[in-house]
Write a protein that binds this DNA or RNA. Structure first.
Lengths: 363, 363
DNA sequence: CGGTCTTTGGAAAACGCTTACCGTGAGTGT
DNA sequence: ACACTCACGGTAAGCGTTTTCCAAAGACCG
């Protein structure tokens, strides 16, 4: 007895034998089902389990119960603070509920995203949370849609972050409203001639930016999040009589390097009367500031900069960046709740708050 | 036929029936075992599978095969760029091998870490990668050790990141060597009176810091990584005749806020002849720089600062931070390889390279 | 003290796969 | 034309659980 030197893990069978009870009793004692088991037997089983270092085989439980304890999380790139903040929220909310989160990176490739969804369908994940960015004109959108529909038809739950969806649950974020509020605040501070560093986009006021985007990215692709932020911002300025000329809307990658390169482009084409730059997310803004600095232009003092998201990194960046705050960890929590809890409040839009900091001084 | 409106997912059985072949044939056709199946049958099965939207139940495969495709990754906090960079490496290496990574956060709580290891043992993860920080004097160290031993006894593989381990695989990082090299470089640049912002530590030259650490953290706890970096750094300075007085070694949390608070402490106690501050990791260094700035002291110009890790964030921080570079994504790759590949080259120490930047100008 | 509930234990049938084993028919060499 | 491989299909026995169903044993009542 208490033979520890087996080469494969102890099974419930072993525990039952060691405790001198039946398989059924052991099962009931260990997971506390509806059925009671006599106290003496329960401790017998529990002790045996401890002695054998028993850990129930989750896969076997999954097939027997017909349900797993896994939640899938798809992000674009964990290294990006936007995603890692969301991921952190998802993971901790999952841990509270004794769920495992299986995380994957789409690496911003929508084909890969489809593959990953299929893989998670195979895992019979209880839910799939898609934090990776949605494109307006995605060549694989249909395939993804079909995959997710099949997934939900079998009892899974898909949850999108940021982009509202007609067909699936979502934690919608008020991107355009946030951008509008930011624009209003900047107008009030005296800014009149902004440029925008947008992600790959289709929304540009002329065709130029989207054509460029299509060119750079091997196909037409507009990031919904970026589009919404761009249009909210641009509309507000336009409404105030300061329409943003299309050459001031740069389409670039939705990343730090994208921001850096976009800013370089802007500098190369001449700054003229430009008085500020709005990058549609913080990592881009931060990249843009570096590009400015590398060109001998002091961000904030010589040219104002603003971002979107309020990622934690910003606390340590100079000048402090004006941005639109999003409760990212909270978004992760809500996504998980929406994915798992049956009574989860539906789809309340996440409000975004403008935070004015040093990078956009009063003019 | 092609009945899609079932409420639970299509099974292999359904596929076999739809294709008009036996279960065994369907299984063989879909996963391509050693056995061949006639081309005509294969396409029959594959088509049926596509029609039904079949995705093999990973749990059932796991119990049948006796092995899963899951790898567990335990990090302290995904939000920390050190961890997220490693995580990114692990996840992408896993995806290449068609493995799923289940990620959890220990939230720097070692009890939780033990619980998570137990949970992953239940998942029958193929490997457990522990990137969360090791403590010298961990109250749960024994329990963790037992848990991991049980895990390995049943064919699992545990891999530690950073801290070499006698009992388990590891991707060891040359923390003390890196710190030593950094110290040498700084000596050469004319620095003579450094302070160190260490993580919770036991190694301080007097008892003072560790006592403080014990106090703050509710028990004696020395982070191995921090200890190694501190001692490498301190030894090198001491050898050059510039021993670091114990009041100049601050024990604080291993986080950005820890760095911030540690720096505040240092400022409060008077800077005197202090000419530089070494924070044992970059996030602490970045926090420290913010604390300096908030106190009206310009990091780099008024007081030099150096860190350790070379996290991606640093590209956008001013002044550019001198640090010790670690190939974090690569570390993630190696950890996964060590965990999975049978022929994985064993435990070569990861070298750390000093990178001098603006934050430590020549004196 | 017999009868009726209520509690508890155990045997065995699922769950959705993989795979060892057996059987069949076609191809080969003589 | 014969035995002999060989390639491939199918049957059924697992894998480690949960859970249904039945039986036995008390508890309670009059």
């Amino acid at each position: 007895m208490t033979e520890h030197d087996r080469t494969s893990a102890a099974t419930l069978h072993d525990v039952a034998r060691e405790a001198g009870v039946s398989l059924a009793t052991a099962s009931r004692a260990i997971n506390g089902s509806t059925r009671n088991v006599k106290e003496s037997n329960r401790t017998l089983v529990l002790d045996a389990a401890r002695r054998l270092g028993y850990a129930a085989n989750a896969s076997a439980q999954a097939v027997a119960r017909g349900t797993t304890t896994t939640v899938a999380l798809l992000v674009g790139d964990v290294t990006d603070p936007y995603f890692s903040s969301i991921a952190s929220g998802v993971v901790s909310a999952a841990t509270e509920r004794a769920l495992i989160v299986a995380m994957s990176q789409t690496e911003r490739d929508s084909q890969r995203e489809v593959d990953l969804v299929r893989a998670m369908r195979g895992q019979r994940a209880r839910a799939i949370i898609l934090a990776a960015s949605r494109r307006a004109n995605d060549p694989h959108a249909d395939e993804l849609q079909r995959e997710l529909e099949a997934y939900e038809a079998n009892g899974g739950r898909a949850v999108f972050i940021s982009t509202p969806s007609e067909d699936f649950r979502a934690v919608p974020i008020d991107n355009s409203g946030g951008a509008r509020k930011l624009a209003a605040a900047l107008l009030e501070r005296g800014y009149r001639s902004p440029a925008v560093l947008a992600g790959p986009s289709l929304v540009g006021t002329s065709d130029e930016p989207s054509a460029k985007a299509a060119d750079r990215l091997g196909g037409p692709a507009g990031l919904r999040t970026s589009d919404d932020r761009l249009s909210g911002f641009a509309e507000c300025f336009a409404a105030a009589g300061h329409a943003i000329p299309s050459r001031r809307i740069i389409s670039t990658a939705f990343t730090r390097d994208g921001g850096y390169e976009g800013m370089q482009q802007l500098i190369a084409s001449g700054l003229d009367d430009l008085d500020m730059v709005f990058a549609v997310n913080d990592v881009m803004a931060v990249g843009a500031m570096s590009a400015l600095r590398d060109a001998g232009i002091e961000p904030g003092r010589d040219l104002a900069v603003a971002g979107f998201d309020d990622i934690p990194t910003l606390r340590d960046v100079t000048p402090r960046l004006t941005t639109v705050q999003l409760p990212l960890t909270e978004v992760g929590h809500r996504a998980l709740s929406l994915a798992i809890d049956d009574d989860a409040a539906d789809a309340e839009v996440v409000e975004a708050e403008v935070v004015i900091r040093e990078s956009t001084p009063q003019r």
